[in-house]
Design a protein around this nucleic acid. Sequence first.
DNA 1: CCCCCCCC
Length: 373
Amino acid sequence: MGDKFQLIHDVSPGTTGWTVKVVVAEKFSPRVAQRSPTKYQNLILMDSEGSTVQATLYGQNITAFQDELILGKTYLISNALVKETNAEYKAKSGEIQWTISGRTRIRRVEENNSNLLISTYSFTDFEDLPKYMDSNVDISVIGMIIDIKPRRIIQTRFGKECQVQDLVLVNKRFDTVLLTMWEAFVDNECKYICQNLKKKTCSDWKASQSLSISTKADSSFFIDGEFELVEEFKSWGHTNSEIIDNMISEKHYLTSTPSKLFSKLSVPTDEKDFTEIKNIQGLKTVIPTVASMRLSMDEDEIFYVKAIMQELSPDCKFEILFIVNPSQIAGDKNKGKAPVEHIGEPIKFLEPTTKRSLFHSDTDDAQSSKKKM
DNA sequence: CCCCCCCC
């Protein structure tokens, strides 16, 4: 972002002739005010130094500007109404707020500032999540979505019905955490994520190398061939459809790096370390634990496995977490269904260490009956 | 001109 423009801090109430180059860092859904019929929408704008300001759109301007202020895109803005924030809300909204109206001049700049956006996030490790249980601290996490559960309706303690949908996130260290989307997030973000997972994975399959799976007489299970290790997933920090879309189009969504280490994989049958599972071809195999990688097979299936590096051996053990069938995902017949078919053991989640469970497993019922909701 | 909560 250049510097011939002003920065957010340079603009105060009464400042004239200013232009600030900003990225739309956050875009909240439009809402109706609690005590009036006023419709409003808040945005967070960020300048080249990472400073932010809250900008608000009211009434008709919300729809008028909806295509002009896109999350993650860069704009030159001038002539917004600049005001001091109501003392009551300063803590939340900052000292200064901008109101964007028909008089505001907005020009789109073709610049990619997603790295700037991302650099301003501070991500909490999955393993540190228990520290924030039952607190109202806002935290950010980063992970790759590896599974989307079917949406479901739950009843709250007060009898209210809510739709929720769980996503499984995996981080770089292959820890998983369950992220539950509530209500509007199911209709908006989840739906969008589903669509883009489809898009993304479909193009991946074409690029993927082939693998073959075979069983030997001694019933060792072999996965043989080239594959890619999901090593680096750069950032998207925001559960917002537009930014996710941006990231995907910039190939930040999932970067795979071929790994020489694992040009050939084998899964020895050592009963005590494994659980027996059946894959969708009916082949029985056994599965271990630890780090995860994504294996692409052929046009028909993608195996998601967990791998364990073994000391003193070039071979890796694998757990097949689930198998994705692209043709099912690509077709419309599975609309609304989870895109991933689980086989064998479900993914194991980190055990909660304190207070209420952020994590889920099939066996945490004792835990959840105690938690206060 | 708004205050973004909460909830299996």
